[in-house]
């Protein structure tokens, strides 16, 4: 009783694929152009590496993204687990609170952060991590919630504690492994958003990869297109890798079973 793909559906998908891929291919071509638009070369990509600001900006972005991921998982996994187990009455509140960061413009948040945050926090780029946690919360909440709903959480917790595990051991040894793919997904989306976020970074005057790229663009548009294409493609590559990871693992395990 499967749905079948008709000719109109194929047309839609092919057209959509075409429209969504073409600009990126065209941009890829552009990033390979030589100076004055003559010939094709990797010069724009090597140009990036020779820029003084690039290395530090990339490192800052990676550091901020990494800390954001850890902070968010550390906060949200226990919270979502808690809400599903004992705090059901808070589920609705948390759902609404988690929608707000999507709705409220980031720019408004930035303008408030400038005034409201203590100077000590504003002097370090780790300030961004806390706001990235807020921005990513909606997606992370939804991903983890779906992941937890798919497992028999109360039963697992009861089983684990009846076998003598402490709550922390239950969380670390049972729950987190059980929602591994949801956790990975949440981590990935946080990482991707944090690496690409621009509004907060520029308005709070931090030098991350996206703000550096816009500055560089004023000097060398080819170079900044190259950065864009490079970062888009590396994120896509990571995502494809992530989303196929379980499948690949599954396939390998199946093979093992067949061999033995």
């Amino acid at each position: 009783m499967k749905r079948t793909l008709g000719w109109s559906d194929r047309t839609i998908l092919i057209a959509a694929g075409f429209f969504f891929i073409t600009p990126f291919l065209a941009a890829g071509e552009y990033s390979l152009r030589g100076y004055g638009g003559k010939g094709h070369t990797f010069a724009n990509y090597t140009w990036i590496l020779h820029q003084l600001g690039f290395g530090p900006a990339l490192l800052t972005s990676l550091r901020i993204a990494g800390v954001s991921v850890l902070l968010l998982l550390f906060l949200m996994i226990p919270t979502v687990v808690y809400v599903q187990l004992g705090g059901r009455r808070w589920a609705r509140l948390i759902e609404i609170l988690c929608l707000l960061p999507i709705v409220i413009p980031v720019v408004s948040l930035a303008i408030g952060a400038q005034v409201a945050m203590p100077k000590r926090l504003q002097s370090t780029s780790y300030e961004l991590c806390f706001f990235y946690v807020i921005i990513c919360m909606p997606y992370v909440y939804r991903t983890l919630n779906t992941g937890l709903q798919a497992i028999a959480l109360p039963t697992l917790v009861e089983a684990s504690s009846s076998l003598g595990a402490t709550p922390v051991k239950t969380l670390v040894l049972v729950i987190i492994p059980a929602i591994r793919s949801a956790t990975l997904g949440a981590a990935f989306i946080t990482f991707a958003i944090s690496m690409g976020e621009y509004a907060l970074a520029v308005l709070l005057h931090f030098h991350t990869l996206p703000t550096w790229a816009t500055n560089a663009a004023q000097e060398n548009l080819y170079g900044s297109v190259a950065i864009s294409i490079g970062s888009l493609f590396s994120v896509w590559f990571l995502l494809v890798l992530f989303s196929y990871l379980p499948a690949i693992k599954g396939a390998l395990q199946n093979k093992k079973v067949k061999v033995t």
Partner: peptide, 23 residues
């Protein structure tokens, strides 16, 4: 990915693709 990695990279890609000199 297209939704969440929008922003700056998307903007530059489009400037490159649809600009006067774009492919």
């Amino acid at each position: 990915v297209l939704t969440s990695t929008g922003g700056i990279p998307l903007a530059f890609s489009f400037i490159a693709a649809f600009g006067q000199e774009g492919l």
